[in-house]
Amino acid sequence: MPDPAVAFDAVSKSFGSKEVLKNVTFSIAAGTAFVLLGRSGSGKSVMLKIICGLLKVDSGSVAVHGNEITKLDSQQLAETRRHMGFLFQSAALFDSLSVGENVAFPLRRNTRKTDAEIREQAKDLLQKVGLDGEYDHAPSQLSGGMRKRAGLARALAMEPSILLIDEPSAGLDPITSTEIDQLLVDIKTKHHATLVVVTHNIPSARRIADQMAFLEDGHLVAQGTLKELEQNENQLVRDFLKSQQAG
């Protein structure tokens, strides 16, 4: 059996006196879409940052493609990150660069392509997310949904094997949200990428997820397919899935 794309083993993490993750263990198979559900502030985003190595765990271990991320030196960590894409909740576009240069940034940093090639590739990426013609605009000129799409284009630039996505539909209208979800599913199937998506938007989760997990008070209280979770013995999980069924 191949290594799982991501594996958490008894991971705990706290900020000051606040415990965010308590002894969390799970794994994500390569090429699947894994959706993390949970209430706001339940530590979902922290898990994404731990996978990417932006935050260090207090105890336990995290392995990405079999490599323990906590034990990598800075160069190995950088190498691992080149195979990851991260879409932040606020998109986190660099204010000092234009939209197109934001997308081109990872290519410029991590490849030896010529300037023209990079521009071409960045334009393609922008086109893919429906932002053709926005290359020279400043990020501040874009709407929230467009920024998110530009952020996605940047995360996709290095054709990552693991895509980490924080709240893809937060602050977006349902139609835009649906478009982005569709885009993610397309990417998963086309590039055989692993998706790790954090959301509390149930319709969005239903559209994307192969596997789901529910995080409550630092514990992973349920894990499985959508069907399995709907049958879960935990009342809270069932309520959570139902609450937004209409939305």
């Binding site: 190498e79 990150r81 080149r82 576009l93």
Partner: peptide, 18 residues
């Protein structure tokens, strides 16, 4: 400060930039 609170610094790190 702005880059920190809007996660731009995290984004840099995630793009394999020190």
């Amino acid at each position: 400060g702005g880059m920190r609170v809007t996660e731009q610094i995290d984004a840099l790190e995630s793009l394999a930039v020190d």
